[in-house]
Design a protein around this nucleic acid. Structure first.
Lengths: 344, 344
DNA sequence: TTTAGCACTCTCGGCTTTCGAGTGCTAAAA
DNA sequence: TTTTAGCACTCGAAAGCCGAGAGTGCTAAA
């Protein structure tokens, strides 16, 4: 990538900022006046022309101002955006809110989504913290009626899965309890695959239950088990690029159709560790549906034990600086929360 | 309420139908032509004029056709809508889908929301089946680390609540298990209030746990604990009354702000038993935010044991006949599902 | 009581016009 | 060589301006 001159970087930055602010194409004269530059508009025009040549800016039509291209945003985010932190008072306020909630993952997710949406003014999403491989912590069997049994599986991260299963013949709560106890002792800390490998020893009721257990844990492993919390959808509908009726519907469908999001997230999450903030601009070429969208994502949690993704999603014309610092901060907080809930 | 003549009812019906179909004001000539009436447009005009006088129709402006008023819709729904059933093939298809799912309430709720949205072409919502008073079925205590204990509460309807609590001093899993067992035996089938009344006997760890348990069960009793499943939001954005950018945002906020929905649902649910379909038109005067909305709701489940609400929500200009029959049918199905999961 | 006739109203879509922001180019100035 | 002033040109957005058409209410006749 050819290095830009300082002045070109400066002008690109201004155009990006100004466009994010106003959503309109930016003209040379406008920049000079608005920022009291001590170069003339003609000079700015020349530089803009060069930036257009290089593919960082484009004109919606002849005789209009310039707008950043996808490449332009990418250059801006990777080299020009100044990496501010959230103001101290804001940070404290947010932390405070978290430490006031009760010790409940769902509550945190909801709060994180809400804070992200409010701070960044775009839509936000938070997935549940989730181990790569569920490991059994505790199994409980509760008789409901007849042959119906409520199976409650607790995994080491503290996730709970419930399921009603039907066993071959009616059975007392006593027997169920001892069975659950036996299985828990036998397989605590084991993953679905490991349990599956060891189950040959068992038969009868135990084998039956183990079948369900393995199935349940496998299901838990596949992403998509947990829910995604979304917030701030209205924020993005307020943006002019989605205010048309057709645009709005497409936008909403994108966020309403969880499978698409799952797909996107699952392919994205690898490649950046906890703490690193990842910025996807314009679907990065591969995601056609997200061509006009950008996302700012980060992993949070305890690597190996339980990690989730959180971030914001909005139009390409997004306040990246603010979004990045907000996402980074929230990822930190959520990691703290998860950690504190795992270790004393 | 003054009785309308047969012909007036007929014309009101036509106007409502036609307006729901086309979203446009309906003129006299149009009706005569479109339905091959053997009265003249002038007669229709006179009747329309009378209906306008009575408050069932109104004109958006002097020289435009008529549009039903809130009162008009209300009259239509209460006396004119013909109460069709879903076609047999559709019903079978839907049932089939339900009986194919695994035995899981959340799955059913999701499916119900999806079916409602698709069939009625407006937005749908489904709340979880929920007892009026949670009764303890089973308590489980699982040590996580240090003084953190995962408390899992199962209520008689089969609902599961989890919560991480901190106890006064570290404690072994053995002790936790026997404690949980003891408490379960002691209080099975009891409500939060009953447990609270009896707890004086207990002290030490037991008392500590009971505190949490009662708090948790009280929380479960207050509506708003369970989630609301929404679907088909895009359907309502497609409607012309919400296609404007400002309208769309307001509409979405309405559905995104769960507390508002909870409030509405909680005040609505009383007053109509399971099976009865309730239609709310234009916020019924009291709900300002819902002035242009209508809802078709029904309770489902086992009265006394676990009931929830499901229904559709959309613009006043909503296909009521279809909506009502769909909601009624789905409420029936969901009741069956809940019943079958409770009794063998 | 119904209907034909008619004058009147008002919105909607399409058309033209105007306005102005912005550009690129050229030639002079630094 | 770089910057800048000057200028002609472009093109979209907004405003203004019809005309068509759908619809009404009223009156008088059937």
């Amino acid at each position: 990538m050819n290095e830009l001159t300082e002045r070109q970087k400066f002008i690109l930055t201004l155009v990006v900022h100004e466009h994010i602010r106003s959503a309109a194409p930016i003209g040379s004269e406008h920049l000079v006046k608005h920022y009291q530059l001590d170069i003339s508009s003609a000079t700015v025009r020349n530089e803009m022309s060069a930036l257009t040549e290089l593919g960082y800016l484009r004109q919606p039509h002849t005789s209009a101002g310039r707008v950043p291209t996808e490449e332009g945003y990418r250059y801006f985010v990777s080299r020009l955006v100044q990496d501010s932190e959230l103001p101290d008072t804001t940070r404290r306020m947010i932390s405070h809110q978290f430490y006031q909630t009760r010790n409940d993952v769902e509550e945190w997710m909801r709060l994180a989504a809400s804070v992200l949406a409010h701070q960044s003014r775009v839509a936000s999403l938070v997935t549940a913290p989730h181990p790569e491989k569920a490991r059994l912590k505790h199994l409980e069997l509760i008789s409901t009626r007849g042959r119906q049994v409520l199976m409650v599986t607790v995994t080491i991260g503290g996730e709970i899965h419930q399921r009603i299963v039907t066993v071959n013949e009616p059975i007392t709560q006593e027997l169920l309890s001892t069975t659950a106890h036996r299985i828990t002792n036998l397989f605590e800390g084991k993953s679905a695959a490991e349990i599956n490998a060891l189950r040959a020893q068992l038969q009868g009721l135990d084998a039956e239950i183990i079948n369900w257990l393995v199935e349940e844990m496998n299901q838990a492993d596949s992403l998509g088990a947990g829910d995604i919390y979304l917030d701030g959808l209205t924020n993005v509908l307020a943006e002019p690029e989605f205010s048309g009726s057709e645009e709005a519907r497409r936008a909403l469908r994108l966020l309403e159709e969880r499978p698409l999001l799952y797909d996107l997230l699952s392919r994205t999450k690898t490649g950046s560790g906890v703490g690193g903030v990842q910025v996807l601009i314009g679907g990065e070429g591969t995601w056609d549906e997200f061509r006009q969208w950008s996302m700012v994502l980060a992993r949070y949690g305890q690597p190996g034990l339980a990690t989730g993704t959180l971030g914001v999603i909005g139009p390409m014309r997004m306040p990246y600086g603010r979004a990045i610092s907000t996402v980074r901060f929230l990822a930190g907080i959520m990691s703290d929360m998860v950690t504190s809930s795992l270790e004393e």
